[in-house]
Write a protein that binds this DNA or RNA. Structure first.
Length: 833
RNA sequence: GCCCGGGUGGCGAAACGGCAGACGCGAGGGACUUAAAAUCCCUUUCCCUUUGCGGGGAGUGCGGGUUCGAUUCCCGCCCCGGGCACCA
C-alpha cells in the first residue's frame, strides 16, 4: 500500500527535473524517493562522486565490507543491513575530511555456486555473470558509496591469477604441503571440507553428514602461525566477540608431554602422551591410544590381536560424525600391553579407544580417572582402578570419588609421594621439572587449530598451480605461466571417486613439464574458496594492474584496511585465514604489516519473526520490494534504527513508517524554513547537543541512538508548528546524509549548494552551546526521588541544598542535620537523614 | 558439558553506578479541515488513594550482596539465542 505521496509522484518528478538551486520556496513538491534516488544514483555515477583519487589522497580511509557471494536469489536484506552499516561509516569518514575508498566485489567461486549451477542445470560460467549483474543492479539501488571502477570478482582470471600466485608463495616458503590424511568428506558435495566447514558433523553447505576419507591433499601450515595468530589478538582493535571466538578456535593448551616406557617384552620403546594435568600423574592408572595410533600394532599382544584389529577397523570405518557426535558411550579394548608410570614405577595397561583423537596432542593420553570426567566414565565401565591424587579442603586420600574431581584451583595433591600438599599449579611445575630431569617429560604447548586443507575435488575454483612430472617430481607452475585458466568443461559434475572433474579432461591436464619439457600432468584439484577471499582487500586498490597482485605505492597508501565491518559468522573462517595469508605475505616481504585490518567490528544478524531467514521458512525479505515501497533511504535508515548494530534485530514492517515520516518532515522543513532573522537560541543549543551526540554515536556505530537523537531534534524543530530557520535545518541535512544519502544530497542542492553534500564538511559543535544553561537536578531523600529542581548549570552543592530545603515536599522529611549529602553536579542531590 | 551474547512497557528499544522507559511503532483523545490526508497538541509500566489538583507504593528474569544510591558492579540460580563440542 503505497503511502500518500504516490498520487503526487509524477508531478513531483516534473518539478524535480526542472528544479534549480534556490527554487525551493516556489511550489514545493512532496518527497518522492524513487525520483530522488534515481536522480542521485545517476549523478554520482556520471560525476564519479564515489571514485577517490587513489594515488593522491592525503587522508586515505579504506572502508571495507565483506563482499557477497552472488547467489541466484539476489541480494539478501542481511546484506543490505551489513553494507548500509559500512556505508554510513564510510560516508561519515568522508564528511570528516577523509578520502574514502569503499570498494565491492563478488566472491563467486566455490561449492555454493557450483551446487546451485548443478541444480538448475546451467553452467556456472553463464550463471555467475548473470547473478553478478543482478547483484550490481540491487547494490546500486541501495545507494552505497561504492567505487565501481574497482569492482572485482574472484572468478576473473586476472584475479585468480594472483590467488594462484599466493599459493606459489606459500609453496616456496614450505607452508603448502601435500599429505595423505583423514579428511572430512561430504558424500553429497563429493568433496573434502575443512574442519571449519563441518557443522555438527554435517556439511556446512548441504547438511549431509560428513564421512572420513584418506586422500592426498594440499594443506597450508597455518598451525605454524598459531602462536602469532594468537598473540596479535591481544592488541588488534577488533570486536571482543570475534577475538574470543578466534582464541577459542586456536585453542592453546599448556601442559606436558610425558614418556611412558613399554615393559617387557617391548622394553626400550615408549609412548608419549600429552596432558594438561601433569600434576595428576600419580593417579594415571592406564594409557589410551587412538585407534589410528602407529604403536597400536606393536603394543598389542598376540592374544589380543583379533579383538584390537576388529576394534581399529570398526573405528576407521565409522565416519567422523558417528564418532564425534551423537551417542558418546565410551568404547575401547585392552591391548594386552603395559607401560610404566614414570612417577610411580607401577605397570599400567594400555588400551585403545576412540575417545582419544589422533589429530590432537600426541594421539595418546595418560588416563587419570579420578580427575578427568571422560577417564572416570571409561574406568567405571571397564573396571579400571580410580585413584585420588587431588583433594579439596576437608577431603583426604580416602575420601571416595563419586565423580571425577576436576577442580584445578582449590585442591591439594595427595597420594603423590614427595609432592603431597602442593597446590595444582605448584604440582604441575614441580612434577614436570622432576620428570624432565629424568628425561621423561617436557613442558609443551598444544593447539587445537589444524592445518588448513585447501584442496577441493571440484570444478568451480582456481586450479592449484602445480604440475607433476614423472622425471622431475612435483613442479610449481612458473609465475609467467599464470593464470592456470579454469577450462570451460560441459561436464563439471563431481563423482564419488574423490577425483576432481578436471581429472577427466586429459586435453587440459596433459602439459609439458616446466623443468624437463616431457609430458607431465597438472594438479586437477582446485583451491578452497576461502583462499580467494583471504586476500581480496589487497587487490581492490590495484585492480587495474595486471602485472602485479597489488601495487606497492597503492598498498602503502591504502593498507592496512582502516575499517572492516562484517558478520561474526566469519570469525573463525575467513577472518583467521585472512590474517594468516597476510602474515605470510608480510614474512615474504610483500607487505609491511602483518595484520590486515586496523579495526574490525562484528555486526549482528537480521532475523525475521524471531527466526533466521530461509527460503524453506518462507520468511525471506526481498530488499527490492521495500526499496520500491519506501525508498532506499528509508530502508537504510530503518534497518539501522531497528536496534543496536552489533546485535542485529528482528525485521518487522511495523516501525518503518516512523522513519519515512522523519524523512518527510525533513523534506518539509527544508522547504518551509525561513532565512530571515535569527535562529532560535534554545533550538540552536539543542542543535549543538544533537551534533555532538550524532557525531559520537555514528563514530562508534551506535546508529540507532544517533537516529533517535536526530528525530528528537526534529521534534524540537517543528514543535507547536513553528517554522524552522535555515540555520537550524541545514546542519541536520548533513547529519542525516550518511544514513539517507539521496534525500540529503537532493535537499542540499535545493538549499543552494552546487556540489554534492559529500564534499561538504561535517558540522562541528560548539561545546559551550552544547551545554544547557539551566539544568534539572534530581533531589533524593535517603536515595528515594522526592522532587526535581531547575537550577543554573554551575550551582554549588550548598546552593542546591538550600533550594531543596525550601521545597516543602522535601523539607517534610527533614530531621535535624543530614547525616550525609551526596551531590553529583548537574545530576542529583541526595540527602541522607 | 564448555565459551560468547541477551532477558527492561502492548511491541522495537534508551539509560558515564545518579530522575528507569529517550526515540519510534501501536493504542486512545484533541486542534486544524466541509471531509480526509498531512501537520501539531495531550495521554499511554502496574497497583493504591483523591471529585479534581495531587499523593503514596511497587517495578528492569529469580535470590542474595556491595553502595547514600544498582538495569548497570559482585556471588548463586532460571530462561532464550548463537558458537564449540570426547581437544586430554
Amino acid at each position: 500500500m503505497p503511502p500518500h505521496h504516490a498520487r503526487h509522484s509524477s508531478a513531483a518528478r516534473r518539478n524535480m527535473t526542472s528544479s534549480t538551486p534556490n527554487s525551493m520556496a516556489a511550489g514545493q513538491a512532496s518527497y518522492d524517493p524513487a525520483a530522488v534516488e534515481r536522480k542521485w544514483q545517476e549523478r554520482w555515477r556520471v560525476e564519479r562522486t564515489n571514485s577517490p583519487d587513489l594515488d593522491g589522497a592525503e587522508h586515505p580511509f579504506y572502508q571495507l565490507m565483506m563482499f557477497p557471494y552472488p547467489s541466484a536469489e539476489g541480494l539478501h536484506i542481511g546484506n543490505v543491513f551489513a553494507f548500509t552499516g559500512n556505508d554510513i561509516h564510510g560516508r561519515f569518514q568522508r564528511l570528516q575530511g577523509h578520502t574514502v575508498f569503499e570498494p565491492i566485489g563478488f566472491d563467486a567461486f566455490g561449492i555454493h555456486s557450483e551446487n546451485y549451477a548443478l541444480k538448475v542445470g546451467i553452467h556456472p560460467m553463464e550463471l555467475i555473470p548473470r547473478n553478478i549483474e543482478n547483484f550490481r543492479r540491487q547494490l546500486r539501488r541501495v545507494g552505497l558509496m561504492v567505487d565501481w571502477t574497482h569492482e572485482l570478482s574472484t572468478t576473473d582470471p586476472p584475479y585468480y591469477k594472483w590467488t594462484q600466485w599466493i599459493f606459489l608463495k606459500l609453496l616456496e616458503r614450505g607452508l603448502a604441503y601435500r599429505g595423505k590424511a583423514a579428511v572430512n568428506w561430504c558424500p553429497s558435495c563429493k568433496t573434502v571440507l575443512a574442519n571449519e566447514q563441518v557443522v555438527n558433523g554435517a556439511c556446512e553447505r548441504c547438511g549431509t553428514p560428513v564421512g572420513q576419507r584418506f586422500l592426498e591433499q594440499w594443506f597450508f601450515r597455518i598451525t605454524e602461525y598459531a602462536p602469532r595468530l594468537l598473540a596479535d589478538l591481544d592488541w588488534i582493535d577488533w570486536s571482543e566477540v570475534t577475538r574470543t571466538a578466534q582464541r577459542n578456535w586456536i585453542g592453546k593448551s599448556e601442559g606436558a608431554e610425558i614418556e611412558f616406557a613399554f615393559r617387557a617384552p617391548m622394553s626400550g620403546a615408549s609412548v608419549r602422551v600429552f596432558t594438561t594435568r601433569p600434576d595428576t600423574i600419580f593417579g594415571a592408572t592406564y594409557v589410551v591410544l587412538a585407534p589410528e595410533h602407529p604403536l597400536v600394532d606393536m603394543v598389542t599382544t598376540a592374544s589380543e590381536q583379533r579383538v584390537v584389529r576388529a576394534y581399529v577397523d570398526r573405528a576407521a570405518k565409522r565416519d567422523l560424525v558417528a564418532r564425534k557426535t551423537g551417542d558418546r558411550e565410551k568404547t575401547g579394548v585392552f591391548t594386552g600391553g603395559f607401560v610404566t608410570n614414570p612417577a610411580t614405577g607401577a605397570p599400567v595397561p594400555v588400551w585403545v579407544a576412540d575417545y582419544v583423537l589422533m589429530e590432537y596432542g600426541t594421539g595418546a593420553i595418560m588416563a587419570v580417572p579420578g580427575h578427568d570426567e571422560r577417564d572416570f566414565e571409561f574406568a567405571g565401565r571397564f573396571g579400571l582402578p580410580i585413584v585420588r591424587v587431588v583433594a579439596a579442603k576437608g577431603e583426604g586420600v580416602d575420601t571416595p570419588l563419586a565423580s571425577a574431581y576436576t577442580d584445578n584451583v582449590g585442591g591439594r595433591l595427595v597420594n603423590s609421594g614427595q609432592f603431597d600438599g602442593l597446590t595444582v599449579p605448584e604440582g604441575k611445575e614441580r612434577i614436570v621439572a622432576w620428570l624432565a630431569g629424568r628425561g621423561a617429560a617436557k613442558a609443551t604447548t598444544t593447539y587445537r587449530l589444524h592445518d588448513w586443507t585447501i584442496s577441493r575435488q571440484r570444478y568451480w575454483g582456481p586450479p592449484i598451480p602445480v604440475i607433476y612430472c614423472d622425471e622431475c617430481g612435483m613442479q610449481a607452475v612458473p609465475e609467467k605461466d599464470l593464470p592456470v585458466v579454469l577450462p570451460y568443461v560441459a561436464d563439471f559434475r563431481p563423482d564419488d571417486s574423490g577425483i576432481s572433474p578436471l581429472a577427466r579432461h586429459e586435453e587440459w591436464y596433459r602439459v609439458p613439464c616446466p623443468e624437463c619439457g616431457k609430458m607431465a600432468r597438472r594438479e586437477t584439484d582446485v583451491s578452497d574458496t576461502f583462499l580467494d577471499s583471504a586476500w581480496y582487500f589487497l587487490r581492490y586498490p590495484s585492480t587495474e594492474f595486471e602485472d602485479r597482485a597489488f601495487d606497492a605505492g597503492r598498498t602503502k597508501r591504502w593498507l592496512p584496511v582502516d575499517s572492516y565491518i562484517g558478520g561474526n559468522e566469519h570469525a573463525v573462517l575467513h577472518l583467521l585465514y585472512t590474517r594468516f595469508v597476510t602474515m605470510v605475505l608480510h614474512d615474504a616481504g610483500y607487505l609491511n604489516f602483518e595484520e590486515p585490518f586496523k579495526k574490525f567490528r562484528a555486526h549482528g544478524l537480521i532475523i525475521r519473526d524471531g527466526a533466521k531467514m530461509s527460503k524453506t521458512k518462507g520468511n525471506v525479505v526481498n530488499p527490492d520490494e521495500y526499496i520500491e515501497r519506501w525508498g532506499a533511504d528509508t530502508l537504510r535508515t530503518y534497518l539501522m534504527y531497528l536496534g543496536p548494530f552489533d546485535e542485529g534485530g528482528d525485521f518487522r514492517d511495523s516501525g518503518i513508517s516512523g522513519v519515512k515520516r522523519f524523512l518527510d518532515r525533513l523534506w518539509a522543513s527544508s522547504h518551509e524554513m525561513r532565512s530571515d532573522g535569527a535562529p532560535d537560541d534554545a533550538v540552536m543549543r539543542k542543535l549543538h547537543r544533537t551534533i555532538r551526540k550524532v557525531t559520537e554515536d555514528t563514530a562508534r556505530l551506535s546508529y540507532n541512538t544517533a537516529i533517535a537523537a536526530m528525530m528528537e531534534y526534529m521534534n524540537t524543530l517543528r514543535s507547536n508548528e513553528r517554522v524552522p530557520h535555515r540555520a537550524e535545518v541545514e546542519p541536520l541535512v548533513q547529519l542525516v546524509a550518511p544514513y539517507a544519502p539521496h534525500v540529503a544530497d537532493e535537499l542540499w542542492e535545493r538549499l543552494g549548494h552546487p556540489d554534492t553534500i559529500f564534499s561538504s564538511r561535517w558540522p562541528s559543535f560548539d561545546p559551550s552551546l552544547a551545554t544547557e544553561e539551566e539544568i534539572e537536578v534530581a533531589v533524593q531523600v535517603n536515595g528515594k526521588l522526592r522532587g526535581t529542581l531547575r537550577v543554573a548549570r554551575d550551582v554549588t552543592q550548598d546552593q542546591v541544598l538550600a533550594a531543596a530545603l525550601a521545597v516543602p515536599a522535601i523539607a517534610k522529611f527533614a530531621s535535624g542535620t543530614p547525616k550525609k549529602v551526596i551531590f553529583v553536579p548537574g545530576r542529583l542531590l541526595n540527602i541522607v537523614w
